[in-house]
Design a protein around this nucleic acid. Structure first.
Length: 920
RNA sequence: GCUCUGGUGGUGGAAUAGGUAGACACGCAGGACUUAAAAUCCUGUGGGCAGCAAUGCCCGUACGGGUUCGAUUCCCGUCCGGAGCACCA
């Protein structure tokens, strides 16, 4: 009997499913541990060998934690709403649900083959009405709450209405859009519609005007990553900037908390950095400039982080979208400004980005008065100022800001240096260092002191205040698409009203086509009778991140009809202890989920303020493409080493036709009709292919399917090999080449238990050498798994098994422990061996062996050493070394003079049989 | 431009409270078994020099400096790759 992986794996996969081995229930008698994978979008292409990398790592960790006595929640599901299924539906007419169901089935099959220990009874699909009921529910909660800065939490809208009725909105400190001040009396006088309009500005889920990427041909708003260079990625249609009324989530209200709470998370520094960067907190001041267009005067507020440079302001700049532009454009400049605005509006976001080096702008004709110097400076309009940040207007200090500098150079505006010794003849001096000059009362101060001093003066003079700004914007939440969660909102005389919670889910209606309507409405405009009590229902759907923002909560209690998650379930499982997934979600999903979690936490539905305690980013697995070289205008292919002698074309060849860069020439001829008559110029009788690391994709013919690996080598080999490939966090190309080594290892393991079909496990007591090998391994595997260093763990297994083989160790005690250690990595084989050792229960219920240090300590002895009778020291050696040898070595050390001069010896570095260094 | 991250044999990668660099694996070469192949097993494998040989010596962790008895590891500078952000005032 050989190691028949294919039979073993089938047997145990069936067994686990039948016995429900990985079912978990909340069990207060045991400590819990929650391990989560970022659930996949089930694409039509199926899984390639790169996808399971993180899943394998999390599965190893889950299985390890079970062996350590934890009650482990390890669920899986599908992020099933999304654009590809909808695009496919538009092309083929096939319902996205059908496509999605089919893709999920295929994913499930592929996942099952790898032997994951998921509790499938907890599976969630975001497109399930039973699931998206709670996505809609959360949205309604956000609609029904506002963010109070005084209490730093979300509070019910009803409470806000009570405040308005009692005292108007002047004292309210809320995260909100611009709202005019009103009194209680005024509020009392407003009608229903007016009140709804005002409240909308306070809601956490709100409708507001915002600039979006609008694609007329597709009839939908697109996210930035769906647009490239002003053209939609799918279809290649032009995209324009358009102001539209869209549902938005007031993520920005939580900016400070999202930033501060990063502190306690066990995430990598680089990921935290990415989020910090994205949130982009900057501390500065708002400052009021008196502006005049010749007939009227206004107070215009700007934001700056460099209040200290106010003496160097030589012009002001407005964003093209700023409302100040209209007020401050003088008649004689009107034409020029209009022309500039039209040109700017036409450009897409991408075009603006691409042209960041070009400096453009136009003068408004108006002037602003510097509040410190009283000097009048011109007001310009330019694209380099963004309307969405700060106040959409800036004070320009060309000497100390490179963007202002470029602008000043372009339009010949003055540049006044403010820091002693700063040379601004060629570039600005942006660093926040040096001593101030030309700056009135700030002269002589360091920049570090001048910034707060300037802000203090601004506040004293009542011309501004300290202010913190964030880069983080509110999330645009509507998409003009079909395949997403419908909004549980209807419009009563144009006023958005929530559909009662008790009537959720609001299920996605059927439509005849998945395209926008002829009148430009979203696809839901095609649904018959898409109304509530006769009122029209919102026709947009929610974006992809809606369904993925709280799925980790749903897994805790997936079949609950009364709540997203019950209090008991949430208090037991709390939050995700370990989350594994790709970095690509750093500023999307991981921000939204944290926001969503904090919101529900504010409302008291859940008990943890952060969703993901520890987060590990697995690297991307790239493809390793192979090439053949066709001699130009022939059907002859020349091997890599000889290709320089000819003029050749490089052609991608399917990596499945290549082994160790050797082409299977027969298979190549059969691959495509074009190559049926291919001729080859070989070297040493072989055709050697070239190779390169590229993205894994069909068009590069470098996709490796895990099914194929499972078939050829088995799931256990695949699992171990994926781990062996390198550090989990690192991106690396897939290369099947090394897999034989891992497979060989598993066969060697098998041979410790069986010879020629006979079970050769003995009950004789374990000998010392074998115990040492085992306990070294226990220690290594334990520390490696805890440290996510799975690749070195696999190496440690190989070394240990080689040693046990050399020791001819077939001892039961040793092998039982070895089998348990191996079970997270190669669970099928471990189960089979566990059974062979006489156990009936699954190995997942076993206990991780305890490391005993005493077994691994080297035979040591202490050597007292003395020099000139002056001092003695002791050293421990792993191999016999006579005191004489030690002393001789010490004296031979070139630095011995130091010792002889009286320097104390701190340490002696010894390797078996040799002293390598003496530390004084 | 800014932030982060990395650079070690033919290849993937080990080793950092500073202490035998290249574990383990692949590949390659040679050998054993075999009619042959596959599979399996054994040996060698960073570069250079010397030697019949055991072996010895020198150079080597992107490059240049520094700290140290000792640097792949720490510090400064340069070059190259990868990721993210990108006019955020």
């Amino acid at each position: 009997m050989e190691y028949n992986f294919s039979e073993i794996e089938k047997k145990w996969q069936r067994n686990w499913a039948e016995r429900g081995t990985f079912r978990v229930e909340a069990d207060p008698s045991k400590p819990k541990y929650y391990v989560l994978d970022m659930f996949p979008y089930p694409s039509g292409a199926g899984l390639h060998v790169g996808h399971p990398l993180g899943y394998i790592a999390s599965d190893i960790f889950s299985r390890y934690k079970r062996l350590k006595g934890f009650n482990v929640l390890h669920p899986m599901g599908y992020d099933a709403f999304g654009l590809p299924a909808e695009q496919y539906a538009i092309q083929t007419g096939k319902h996205p649900e059908a496509t999605t169901t089919q893709n999920i089935a295929r994913y499930r099959e592929q996942l099952d083959r790898i032997g994951f220990s998921y509790d499938w009874s907890r599976e969630v699909k975001t497109c399930d009405p039973g699931y998206y009921k709670w996505t809609q529910w959360a949205f309604l909660q956000m609609f029904g709450h506002w963010y109070n800065y005084d209490t730093q939490r979300a509070e019910p809208i009803a409470a806000l209405e009570a405040i308005f009725a009692a005292s108007g909105n002047a004292g309210v400190h809320a995260a909100c859009s611009e709202v005019p001040v009103f009194t209680a009396e005024e509020w009392a006088g407003y009608d229903e519609a007016k009140r709804a309009e005002i409240l909308m500005n306070y809601r956490i889920a709100y409708q507001g005007e915002t600039a979006v990427n609008w694609c007329p041909a597709l009839g939908t708003v697109l996210a930035n990553d769906e647009v490239k260079e002003g053209i939609s990625i799918r279809g290649g249609h032009p995209v324009e900037q358009k102001k539209m009324k869209q549902w938005q989530l007031r993520v920005s209200a939580y900016a400070e908390r999202l930033l501060n709470d990063l502190e306690d998370l066990e995430w990598t520094d680089s990921l935290k950095d990415m989020q910090r960067n994205w949130i982009g907190r900057s501390q500065g001041a708002e400052m009021i400039f008196r502006v005049s267009n010749g007939t009227e005067e206004y107070d215009m507020t700007i934001f700056t982080t460099r209040a200290d440079t106010v003496f160097g302001v030589t012009f002001m700049v407005l964003a093209p979208e700023s409302e100040w532009v209209e007020k401050l454009t003088r008649p004689e400049q009107k034409e020029a400004v209009e022309a500039y605005l039209v040109a700017a509006r036409k450009k897409t976001e991408r075009e603006r980005m691409a042209e960041t080096r070009k400096v453009t702008g136009v003068f408004t004709g108006s002037y602003a008065k510097n509040p410190f110097t009283g000097e009048e400076v011109p007001i310009w309009v330019s694209e380099y100022v963004l309307s969405g940040y700060g106040t959409g207007a800036i004070m320009a200090v060309p000497a100390h800001d490179s963007r202002d500098y470029a602008f000043a150079r372009q339009f010949n505006l003055p540049i006044i240096p403010l820091i002693e010794g700063a040379d601004v003849s060629n570039e600005s001096f942006d660093a926040k260092e040096g001593i101030m000059c030309n700056s009135g009362f700030l002269n002589g101060m360091s920049v570090k002191d001048a910034i707060p001093a300037a802000i203090n003066r601004v506040e004293e003079l009542g011309i501004g205040r300290r202010k913190v700004n964030f880069r983080l914007r509110d999330a645009i939440f509507s998409r003009q698409r079909y395949w997403g969660e419908p909004f549980p909102v209807y419009f009563k005389e144009g006023v958005p009203c929530p559909i009662p919670e008790s009537e959720l889910p609001l299920t996605l209606p059927e439509v005849d086509k998945f395209l926008p309507t002829e009148t430009g409405e979203p696809p839901l405009g095609r649904a018959k009778d898409w109304t509530y009590n006769g009122y029209p229902i919102e026709k947009s759907t929610m974006p992809g991140f809606a369904g993925s923002s709280a799925y980790y909560l749903r897994y805790m209690d997936p079949h609950n009809d009364e709540a997203l998650v019950s209090r008991e379930a949430n208090e037991y499982w709390r939050s995700v202890d370990l989350y594994i997934g790709g970095t690509e979600h750093a500023t999307g999903h991981l921000i939204y989920a944290r926001f969503w979690n904090k919101f529900l936490y504010d409302l008291g539905y859940i008990c943890e303020k952060e969703p993901f305690r520890k987060l590990v980013n697995q690297g991307m697995i790239q493809g390793r493409s192979n090439f053949v070289y066709r001699i130009k205008n022939t059907n002859t292919f020349v091997s890599l080493g000889l290709k320089d002698q000819y003029e050749t074309t490089e052609i991608h060849v399917d990596v499945n036709l290549v082994t160790n860069d050797r082409l299977d020439t027969e298979a190549f001829r059969n691959w495509m009709p074009d190559y049926a008559n291919a001729e080859f110029i070989l070297e040493n009788g072989e055709y050697i292919c070239g190779w390169a690391v590229e993205k894994m994709s069909k068009s590069m013919f470098n996709v490796v399917n895990p099914d194929r690996i499972c078939e050829e080598y088995g799931a256990d080999t695949l699992r171990m090999y994926e781990m062996f490939l390198g550090p989990l966090e690192q991106s690396k190309p897939w290369d099947t080449k090394g897999i034989d080594g891992v497979h060989r290892f598993l066969r060697k393991v098998w041979k410790l238990y069986f010879r020629e079909g006979e079970n050769i496990v003995t009950d004789a007591p374990a000998d010392k050498a074998a115990l040492k090998v085992l306990h070294k391994l226990i220690h290594k595997v334990e520390t490696d798994i805890e440290g996510f260093s799975f690749n070195t763990s696999v190496s440690a297994f190989m070394i240990a098994v080689n040693e046990l083989t050399d020791l001819k160790c077939h001892n039961r005690e040793i092998l039982e422990a070895l089998t348990i250690l191996l079970s997270p990595f190669a669970p099928h084989l471990a189960e089979e061996l566990w059974e062979a050792l006489g156990h009936e229960e699954s190995i997942s219920g076993a206990t991780f062996p305890t490391y005993v240090e005493a077994y691994t300590v080297e035979d040591t002895c202490e050597y007292p050493v003395s020099f000139n009778g002056k001092m003695r020291f002791k050293i421990s050696l792993s191999k016999s070394l006579s005191p004489k040898e030690v002393e001789a070595a010490a004296l031979a050390d070139p630095n011995c003079e130091k010792y002889l001069a009286g320097a104390p010896i701190k340490k002696i570095i010894v390797v078996p049989g040799k002293i390598i260094n003496i530390v004084y």
